[in-house]
């Protein structure tokens, strides 16, 4: 479905995110065979899709695994690795730490979703302390938090200048605590 066909007050997800997610799942063999073909079939990188379609895509993975958290982290990392090395990532992010600013700014999360703020939520950098190697991102998006942890890890590691990144949300699932060195 493209933008024109979607109801105006509905949240929309950009095709690049859908394709990135689906391609990462296929590359990691999380979905395989006929499922993999159906998974990616018909997705257009420049179209906008209703949130429900994203949720269906995500649900296909979530329902297949007893412990899906490590899977979603890995998918997030794979998405951003692909984005950086085979997509536009290199052009917009030079250093690992700056990915945090990019992803929480207008070019990141905000550029791949559209719709009412109450549904879209936000992805904000609450704390950034480079000297201590610590940052906190507050997320209220409808996306899987572990995938978002993976997105931050993958995006920060991709430029290759950071030796260590960990992102945890154990204490409060919406607060993604980033440690980097």
């Amino acid at each position: 479905m493209n933008e024109q066909n979607a109801p105006p007050d509905q949240m929309l997800v950009h095709g690049s995110l859908m394709v990135g997610f689906a391609q990462a799942c296929v590359n990691l063999n999380i979905v395989a065979g006929r499922d993999a073909t159906n998974f990616i079939k018909g997705l257009q990188i420049n179209d906008w899709y209703p949130l429900a379609q994203w949720e269906r895509l995500q649900e296909l993975v979530v329902r297949s695994y007893g412990n899906v958290d490590p899977i979603m982290v890995k998918v997030g990392i794979a998405m951003m690795t692909g984005w950086y090395h085979y997509g536009p990532g290199k052009e917009v992010v030079r250093r690992g730490a700056s990915f945090l600013h990019y992803q929480t700014g207008s070019g990141g999360f905000a550029s791949v979703v559209r719709g009412p703020e109450s549904v879209v939520g936000s992805f904000e950098l609450e704390l950034f302390d480079k000297s201590r190697g610590k940052a906190i991102v507050h997320s209220t998006t409808p996306f899987n938090r572990k995938m978002e942890c993976g997105v931050l890890i993958g995006g920060m590691l991709a430029p290759g200048d950071i030796d260590y990144v960990d992102v945890r949300n154990d204490e409060d699932s919406d607060h993604l605590v980033v440690e980097f060195h």
């Binding site: 063999n29 999380i30 297949s64 695994y65 007893g66 412990n67 899906v68 958290d69 490590p70 899977i71 982290v73 890995k74 990392i77 890890i153 950071i162 030796d163 260590y164 990144v165 960990d166 060195h181």
Partner: peptide, 20 residues
């Protein structure tokens, strides 16, 4: 530490896929 963390994440991933 970064390599160990990557290994930890990969191990968790493979454990999960193995369980699956």
């Amino acid at each position: 530490r970064g390599l160990a963390k990557t290994l930890e994440r990969d191990t968790a991933f493979w454990n999960s896929t193995n369980e699956n």
